[in-house]
């Protein structure tokens, strides 16, 4: 029953996002929508397609969480954020989780009071240069002009890298990734630096990808992952274990195609616990037993999401590399479902 008309009208207009600090899980359920912060457009990771539907590797995490919590992978409000707005959007409660290739660092975790729930992509900062520049290593870049997206850790890494190698450089700071590419293509800078995954994505998008080389140096560690606010451990658990469910699903061989069948019960105890035919893990999270089943059913397990969005078969063409599952010698590893 509406007691106050004004509030009612405002709610209808979608102008209030409801409670922000109480319990995020309850808020999301009450609202029936997950507010998920994404970037304003990085090919393969998060970008709206021609119909305005958000697609990508980071978006898939949002969709999995929405499916697990709300039983609807489309019940998401995608909130585009820039490097500047992302943390305040999360801190002020405008978004429930941030899935926007954000680097897990000490100060963001501790000082900015966020909780990184895991790593969904192990990245490192690299450089891309035009092939005809004749540069084969980042250590030859003394005096170069570098295009860089502001508001990210790449700025600090860049300053550190050039200082430690005793080189000088000229930074061309740019607001968005696509403008950085525009600048780079126009020749306003010699090299473009950002995470290597994004470099690969941008390079794949260029008219003649072969005219550009990604230099071999990796100048930083960039563990990218979704994050939530500090202090709401329940919600943090939901997002963390949804991500882990996707990773575990790959380990156990659960795919979007066979998840329905597997959920009926198998001989593997961990799979049964994961998919809810055994134990009550979902209930412990505050969800129902089928949560992981739904999360996996949206766009498959971690491996499938990777392959479909940024993998070797896509235009982005990233190899699994360190992002292979641990049994294949990679770093992608989930704690057990027990």
């Amino acid at each position: 029953m509406k007691t106050s008309f004004i509030l009612g009208a405002v709610t209808v207009a979608g102008l209030t996002a409801g409670a922000a600090f109480a319990g995020t899980l309850d808020d999301v359920k009450a609202r029936g929508k997950l507010n998920c912060g994404v970037s304003t457009g990085v090919p393969g990771f998060a970008e709206p397609d021609a119909n305005g539907v958000w697609q990508g590797f980071d978006v898939a995490v949002c969709r999995a969480v929405a499916a697990a919590v709300l039983n609807d992978s489309d019940a998401i409000e995608f909130v585009p954020t820039t490097g500047k707005t992302r943390f305040t959007a999360l801190a002020s409660g405008e978004i429930d989780m941030l899935a926007r290739n954000t680097t897990w660092t000490f100060s963001r975790d501790v000082d900015l009071k966020f909780e990184f729930v895991g790593v969904n992509y192990y990245d490192g900062q690299g450089f891309m240069a035009k092939a005809d520049l004749g540069v084969s290593s980042a250590t030859e870049l003394d005096g170069a002009t570098v295009c860089i997206q502001t508001g990210t850790t790449t700025e600090l890494n860049l300053a550190d890298f050039f200082r430690s190698n005793n080189m000088s450089y000229e930074a061309v700071p740019v607001e968005t990734g696509s403008e950085a590419v525009t600048n780079y293509m126009a020749g306003a800078c010699d090299v473009f630096t950002t995470d290597r995954s994004a470099l690969a994505a941008r390079r794949a998008n260029m008219e003649n990808p072969n005219e550009h080389v990604v230099l071999p140096e990796i100048v930083s560690k960039e563990p990218l992952g979704p994050l939530v606010r500090h202090g709401d451990n329940n919600w943090g658990d939901v997002v963390r274990w949804t991500l882990n469910a996707l990773i575990t699903a790959e380990e156990l061989g659960v795919t979007a195609a066979n998840v329905a069948e597997m959920a009926k019960g198998t001989k593997i105890p961990e799979m049964n616990r994961l998919l809810g035919s055994e134990g009550n893990l979902g209930e412990m999270l505050g969800l129902d037993a089928d949560w992981a089943h739904r999360a996996i059913a949206v766009s498959g397990n971690y491996g499938e999401i990777f392959e479909n969005n940024i993998g070797a078969s896509t235009i982005i063409g990233l190899a699994r590399g360190v992002n292979a599952k641990w049994t294949d010698g990679g770093l992608i590893y989930s704690p057990p479902f027990r």
């Binding site: 304003t40 990085v42 970008e47 954020t81 500047k84 707005t85 990734g177 403008e179």
Partner: peptide, 19 residues
């Protein structure tokens, strides 16, 4: 500039970065 997709934001964001 504050990541709302108005006419200019639409151009600078989704359209310019689209494949």
């Amino acid at each position: 500039i504050i990541s709302m997709f108005d006419l200019v934001g639409m151009i600078r964001g989704p359209i310019l970065s689209s494949t």
